[in-house]
Nucleic acid binder design. Structure first.
Lengths: 237, 237
DNA sequence: TTCCTCGTTCACCACTTCTTCACCATGCGT
DNA sequence: ACGCATGGTGAAGAAGTGGTGAACGAGGAA
């Protein structure tokens, strides 16, 4: 359940936003001035921030700049009564992710926040790191690509991230919740089958491709584990 | 010990900066006018440049533009008394890496320079100034020219810089955000298609020109990668 | 001035990937 | 063996992403 920080001095509006975002599955927290907003951004690290520009304390512009200069990458959805093109362009330049002009519908706000939170998770950080090799499986983070028997596995971004995450914890059982948290940012989610679906696709592209090993093992009731297990004659499909 | 070129006409300030940067482990060199600054940038290839905009000789704006057009990628930290947002945006657009408004603390200057230098180190894998050759593609940063099959590719300055940037990280996937940051100095703004458009034009001039390879590969959902891939009979348009 | 080049933005389209769901298979405790 | 819980599978709609052509505007050149 992604946490959303609302920085808005009009209490009525803030409550409305909190209510709607809550109903949409977010975990809203709101503060009424810029100083507190910045502090919360720093120490609570919400998943998304909804920010009014006109604020007591430090204003929205300053808040964005300061946060970005400190390397805080939290997506910021700006909400403002002023919506000239100049304002919008400037806000985006200094690091806002989206700009909503008041008045707007709550439905739209929720949509933008949802988009921002998704985007943040998908945002690939600069590819870096050494390739990981496990038997005939090679995972190259610079190319964002995996190879089985030196054959490219053509993984999608999410598939790759899942495989990479499992590879980082090679041999250890990683729970679904952990994966959901790390790759999807969902704090808790009972009965979410997303991970299973991606594991299935990974198996199709990695395990099936390999002639000698299966790599992704299931631990019933717990999670998954990356570990090469030789294929027996019988187990080869 | 990274070399820092200081281009600043106020001698007192220049000395102060040199002293602090020296104390922070840099190797500072300073010059008092734009013409000399550009010359030093060209031939000494410092790791970072600290640049005052108001200068005798060619001014800071012109210096940045000229250097960038010549493919000089040295990170430039602009220092200026004028700090209107227009100035800042423009400076970043034409290729500055950072913008400090006077007065500023020496501590902050050092921090920015350090950050810029760190950024520079990452792209230092290929020595600057050397032509890069990848199959029948040759990229010459001194000439600011690229050749395919020894035929000049007639790239515009920005196209060239994009190609060069990709070439410096040959084989690695470079995200759009990274390119946007390095070439345009913009912070990622999510629906910016500028990079795509330039990639398209590069492909027109480079990939199409080559009879044997395609060079610019797309990694869906991540970014682009410079890597020669033989054209098959089928893929030749 | 007018003409050109270049950078930037936009809209449209095709395509890929993500997410969800229902249903089936398997594992586990009793 | 039985029944519940957990995991696997396929499909389909939703959402996101990239390629492309065109238009616009700023700035320099003629």
């Amino acid at each position: 359940m992604p946490k959303v920080l609302i920085v808005e001095d009009d209490e009525v509006i803030a409550q409305g936003m909190a209510r709607h975002l809550g109903a949409a599955g977010f975990d809203p927290v709101s503060v009424g001035n810029g100083t507190q907003g910045l502090a919360r951004l720093r120490y609570e690290r919400p998943d998304v921030c909804v920010l009014d520009l006109m604020l007591p304390g430090i204003d929205g512009w300053k808040l964005i700049e300061t946060a970005r200069n400190e390397g805080i990458g939290t997506p910021i959805v700006v909400v403002s009564a002023r919506g000239t093109e100049h304002d919008r362009v400037h806000a985006l330049e200094i690091g806002a992710d989206d700009y909503l002009v008041k008045p707007f519908s709550m439905k739209e706000l929720v949509a933008r926040v949802r988009a921002a939170s998704r985007r943040a998770l998908r945002r690939e950080e600069t590819p870096r790191g050494e390739p990981i090799e496990i038997e005939e499986l090679r995972i190259d983070p610079l190319e964002v690509q995996a190879y089985v028997d030196d054959q490219s596995a053509e993984l999608t971004p999410t598939e790759f991230r899942l495989l990479y995450q499992l590879a980082l914890d090679r041999g250890r059982v990683v729970t679904r919740d952990e994966l959901l948290q790390k790759l999807w940012g969902r704090r808790e989610s009972h009965r979410d089958r997303t991970v299973d679906v991606f594991v299935r696709r990974l198996r199709e592209k990695v395990d099936r491709q390999s002639s000698t090993h299966t790599f992704i093992q299931t631990r019933y009731g717990v999670g998954y584990r990356l570990e090469p297990v030789p294929k027996t004659a019988a187990s080869v499909s």
